[in-house]
Design a protein around this nucleic acid. Structure first.
Length: 765
DNA sequence: CCCTGTGGCCGTGGCA
DNA sequence: TGCCACGGCCACCAAT
């Protein structure tokens, strides 16, 4: 076959046994080409290594390179023999090296010269957002014990949605919906879904790595069928945090992992990461909801089944909509950090940064540090780093709040002071004046690779922001957002113990310099007549008093003129009212973010309150939320106390629904060292002959029978009475005291209608 | 190739 | 026996 040219988007890259595989998409579909490529590592050129090389044979030496003033051999990685004591660039994926060395970027347009399927030449010719065929999917199971048991509980629905308007729910029980696709049984359902998904290039799910895909595979196996994606076996890797699904020939993308990544980088700030909550945060609409405990009942009812079908479809559509909204950002993250789409399924923000640093180290001829050894890890994990500045708020209710963010604070500090493990305490006398408040100093003669990288990204971001002012292009907007996420991750890399660039001194220098800068802002704000109520890391909360929004805007503009150029103070938002709660911690370390705000549109933002855990009964959760909302909307703590008293009264008078008192806890094991309420309830049910599998969610209530809480615990369906005092003292009161306690109310004040007027004096009301 | 810390409940031991 | 302090265990999550 003759040589030919191929143009297309690079959507995936893999390495296997001396070969790199590039997956390219163009008008004629998806194709894969390969290139010969040997993975390698570096060893220093010295007598000891020369001796080893002589023994191995010179054919293993690919090249000699100069890095940081030393000479290294580039050694072909043939197998894992461990002759060399210290290897560099060793545990870096080969595909990443290939991308960097050939200057090609995932999601960019490539021009290949190929012969048969072999790559002769590869060139990156530009950047745009590739249009991929994307479908989202979701499954529902029939799970009477809430947690689905893969051996017993069947998949009843499989839903999907795509941009081209394809949407549907596959089911083997009719629900009278025009989007339903009726099949014979579960096995056919799985086959049908498989068929559908494999028509596409990207398969998107929500938590699908840990749930949907493993479940589909195991059910298929049990039914003597097969669930497959792409052209090779689906690989499932177990991690402590969840599972990772690897496919080839088709890209599986788990949105949940991306959401976690964005949350870590502070780009998303919701209490929880459920599809429902994320949908509301990102799309700005409410998603359809169904009461989970009754899912089976709804499915079993011929009249109601349609609602469950609607719900199933709404999950697939929500997943699709979130993906589409985030797609430009996703693509830009891939491009900037040179990571193919599928890698975002298992990546952390420090890995994004590391990936970039690999590239810059290669370009600027720096040696990439090795990963820490087990001993180093242990050592590092014991090191305490001075954290960011937190001004502990005076508990209370505040009106007219402006929140200012100092977003590029840490990156600017890194650049301004040349913070890098290699520039740390360099020994030059003249550099000692560049000393951080924590006592480390940094070289002013030679730039470190991290400041070089950060500076490049900052100036790129600045340029793009200026372009954005002239032309509000979604692509540029996404790139600016992606850069912000990556820039915000550099500091974490110094602190993260497994990082190649870990440095306690660097991390501490950044935080202590950060403290200085933010305290400067506080001082300036106070001079202008604002009151600073709360500060954390790079955020400042001001009360405006009788000042206007324009005054805040003017203040921020003035500050921005005075601070170093790369830094920028931004207005995050204006809030009508806010409530702050003091968090009492041991030794005052790490006062936590605990506050709630209401903006001018009535949108409530809650941070740090443990509101929505299922191991609190709904009655207590509702009460806590009502109290918070009342304070934010009405601004009165007296009214809030009144709400609690009413709730207690309702409990005492029996005005409640049983299901609102149920506490849900997962029973993860069959044997425990201590008796917990959920285990005790489970044992009692078992003695009655009720079978509850381990791993189920136990829904129990606290009854009057027994001494300890465990003794009183009973599976909800068997309980006839309720220990109201428990619900008052251990559920409702602790929940609301997290808020009202900060305003000086005690348990007794709320419970007994008493109000403390002065020390020791009580007044009954 | 990881990235919690927080808080409720139980069980024990010390003390009166 | 009752009370208190303290240490340790365990779940919280996401999907259903």
């Amino acid at each position: 076959m003759k040589k030919m040219k191929v143009r297309g988007i690079l959507i995936d890259i893999n390495y296997k046994e001396g070969k790199i595989f590039l997956t390219i998409k163009n008008e004629s579909g998806i194709s894969t080409f390969y290139d010969d490529y040997y993975d390698y590592f570096y060893v220093e050129k010295n007598d000891e290594n020369n001796a080893i090389i002589n023994k191995l044979g010179m054919e293993n030496v690919l090249d000699e390179v100069e890095l940081e003033g030393k000479t290294f051999y580039k050694i072909k990685k043939v197998n894992e023999e461990n002759e060399f004591y210290i290897k560099y660039a060793h545990n870096i994926p080969a595909w990443k090296k290939y991308l960097i060395e050939n200057e090609i970027t995932p999601m960019n347009l490539l021009e290949l010269e190929v012969e048969n399927d072999k790559i002769l030449e590869v060139k990156d010719v530009g950047s745009y957002i590739p249009k991929l065929k994307v479908i989202s999917f979701d499954i529902e199971t029939y799970a009477p014990f809430i947690i689905p048991r893969v051996n017993k509980d069947p998949i009843i629905f499989a839903s999907y949605a795509s941009r081209d308007g394809e949407k549907g729910v596959i089911t083997f029980k009719r629900g009278n919906r025009d989007f339903e696709l009726l099949v014979k049984d579960e096995k056919e359902l799985i086959e049908k879904l498989c068929e559908k998904l494999n028509e596409y290039e990207v398969i998107v799910g929500y938590n699908s790595s840990s749930f949907d895909i493993p479940y589909l595979m195991k059910r298929a196996e049990k039914l003597n069928g097969k669930f497959w994606l792409g052209n090779e076996e689906i690989e499932i890797k177990k991690l402590t945090t969840g599972k990772i699904v690897r496919t080839s020939g088709i890209i599986h993308f788990d949105l949940f992992y991306l959401i976690r990544l964005l949350a870590n980088a502070q780009a998303i700030k919701t209490q929880r990461y459920s599809l429902e909550e994320i949908y509301e945060e990102i799309i700005g609409e409410k998603k359809m909801d169904l009461e989970e405990e009754k899912m089976c009942e709804i499915y079993d009812s011929d009249e109601k089944r349609g609602i469950y079908l609607d719900y199933s479809l709404s999950d697939a559509i929500a997943t699709y909509k979130i993906f589409e909204k985030l797609y430009p950002l996703i693509v830009e993250i891939c491009k900037i950090s040179k990571i193919p789409l599928k890698e975002l399924n298992n990546i952390t923000s420090s890995q994004l940064v590391e990936s970039l640093l690999f590239e810059y180290s290669y370009k600027y001829k720096f040696l990439i540090p090795n990963r820490p050894s087990e001993e180093e890890l242990l050592e590092r994990s014991e090191e305490k780093v001075i954290g960011a500045y937190v001004k502990i708020p005076e508990p209370g209710i505040y009106e007219k709040i402006a929140v200012l963010d100092f977003r590029s604070l840490y990156p600017s500090i890194i650049v301004a002071h040349n913070i890098d493990p290699k520039t740390l305490n360099c020994g030059h006398k003249e550099c000692m004046k560049n000393v951080s408040p924590s006592g480390s100093y940094f070289c002013i003669k030679n730039r470190g690779i991290i400041p070089i990288t950060v500076e490049n990204l900052l100036s790129l971001r600045k340029k793009l922001k200026e372009e954005l002012k002239k032309n509000d292009d979604p692509l540029i907007r996404a790139r600016v957002a992606a850069l912000k996420i990556i820039l915000n991750s550099f500091y974490g890399m110094f602190r993260y113990v497994r990082s190649r660039w870990y440095s306690k001194e660097c991390a501490e220098s950044i935080t202590t310099w950060g403290r200085k800068y933010i305290l400067d802002i506080a001082k300036k704000a106070e001079e202008k007549g604002f009151k600073v109520i709360y500060m954390d890391t790079d955020s400042t909360f001001l009360t405006m008093g009788n000042k206007s929004k324009e005054d805040v805007i003017k203040f921020v503009e003035e500050v921005n003129k005075e601070i170093p150029e790369a830094m920028e103070l931004e207005i995050e938002n204006f809030y009508k009212r806010g409530v702050f709660v003091e968090k009492k911690t041991k030794e005052e370390i790490g006062a936590r973010k605990k506050y709630a705000l209401i903006d001018e549109n009535g949108k409530i933002k809650i941070r740090g309150f443990e509101l929505v855990r299922r191991d609190w009964c709904k009655f207590a959760r509702d009460t806590q939320l009502e109290v918070l909302e009342s304070i934010l909307k009405e601004g009165s703590k007296e009214k809030a106390v009144e709400i609690v008293r009413n709730k207690i009264k309702q409990l005492r008078e029996g005005k409640f629904k049983k299901e609102d008192l149920v506490i849900y806890t997962q029973l993860r094991k069959g044997k425990y060292k201590v008796t917990s309420p959920e285990f005790s309830a489970y044992e009692k049910a078992r003695k009655r002959g009720i079978k509850i599998p381990i791993g189920s969610i136990i829904g129990y209530v606290i009854t009057k029978n027994g001494k300890s809480i465990s003794e009183k615990a009973e599976i909800a369906q068997f309980a006839n009475d309720f220990d109201i005092e428990y619900y008052i003292n251990n559920q409702v009161l602790p929940a609301v005291l997290k808020i009202l306690g900060a305003f000086g109310y005690s348990e007794e004040d709320i419970k007994y209608y008493g109000k403390q007027t002065s020390l020791g004096e009580w007044e009954n009301g």
